[in-house]
């Protein structure tokens, strides 16, 4: 029973990791960009959530109404202003520029909020739980997982059923020909980054309600997200959700064996999958 409990908690934790990963997956799918500052943007979202919920006396989840559009705007401007200039055949410029952004974000947050760990107060939601066949499930982890499923589903819908999604896929297929259709590549990428960072805002708020955070934790959030994307298979959003779940289960089961093994177990499962199935468990089928 205890093991089953660990697995179930891991599945729910995987929802949070899928939220970390969804934005990365989207950005990579549309413009082949790997954003090293992704984890720091998640942390930025958590801090913005903290500030708005404290300043306006809002519940952190309600703060999303402000934080998600704010991050979307930041994403659009970041893409149009800086990141679009780095895209090309050379992988170095986007990597180095987002690495620089990561250092800037971390230190700016340090300057403003200090290194003291912070947490958002979500009231009763944090401790509420439901009992299911002898296993106690936290309402917050359940909600996180449900939101992750909903967001992945929504992104999938946008991708395959809207004009914006068509523009994303067309630009990803062939930038030049997409321009011939009157699509402004710079703007398409801007919208993709805006959407990705709106999702990142959700990830940041749930992170900040669930655990305490400080400006330095972005790197490991990036790594969790990255692992979920690779485990699930590049360019497959449902795969990314599955990857998050696998990573979450590996961590909770690892922690059950030995508390010091939580993170290590996740990384080891990631490396094993990389060794056995380098293109992930559910790679996108290409026609």
């Amino acid at each position: 029973m205890e093991w089953l409990n660990a697995v179930i908690q891991g599945v729910l934790l995987g929802g949070l990791y899928a939220l970390f990963a969804a934005g990365l997956s989207l950005i990579f799918g549309v413009m082949r960009l790997v954003n090293i500052a992704h984890g720091d943007l998640i942390v930025l979202a958590a801090y913005l959530g903290l500030t708005t919920s404290v300043a306006l006396g809002l519940h952190p989840l309600l703060a999303l109404v402000l934080v998600a559009p704010a991050l979307a705007a930041i994403g659009f401007l970041l893409q149009i202003g800086i990141l679009n200039r780095t895209l090309g055949n050379d992988i170095l410029p986007p990597l180095l520029v987002t690495f620089g952004l990561s250092v800037i974000l971390q230190n700016a947050l340090l300057e403003i909020y200090t290194a003291d760990p912070q947490k958002m107060d979500a009231g009763a939601l944090e401790t509420a739980s439901v009992s299911l066949g002898g296993i106690s499930l936290g309402v917050l982890p359940l909600l996180t997982f449900a939101v992750a499923v909903a967001i992945v589903g929504a992104l999938q819908w946008v991708f395959y059923n809207t004009a914006l999604g068509r523009a994303f896929r067309a630009t990803s297929d062939n930038q030049d020909i997409a321009q011939l259709m009157g699509l402004n590549k710079a703007h398409v990428y801007g919208y993709a980054m805006a959407l990705a960072l709106a999702v990142t805002a959700v990830a940041g708020i749930f992170l900040g309600i669930r655990t305490s955070f400080d400006p330095a934790i972005g790197g490991s959030r990036l790594i969790f997200g990255f692992e979920a994307v690779i485990i699930g298979g590049l360019g497959n959003l449902w795969g990314t959700l599955a990857g998050g779940v696998i990573l979450g289960v590996a961590q909770t089961v690892g922690a059950k064996i030995d508390p010091g093994w939580q993170l290590l177990a996740g990384h080891i499962v990631f490396l094993l999958i990389l060794a056995v199935r380098p293109s992930g468990l559910f790679p996108k089928v290409t026609g």
């Binding site: 090293i36 990597l95 990036l222 790594i223 690779i230 990631f270």
Partner: peptide, 12 residues
């Protein structure tokens, strides 16, 4: 891992 994913892989 290719390109940028190699980079993050080294971090892992």
């Amino acid at each position: 891992l290719r390109g940028a994913y190699f980079a993050i892989g080294t971090w892992v």
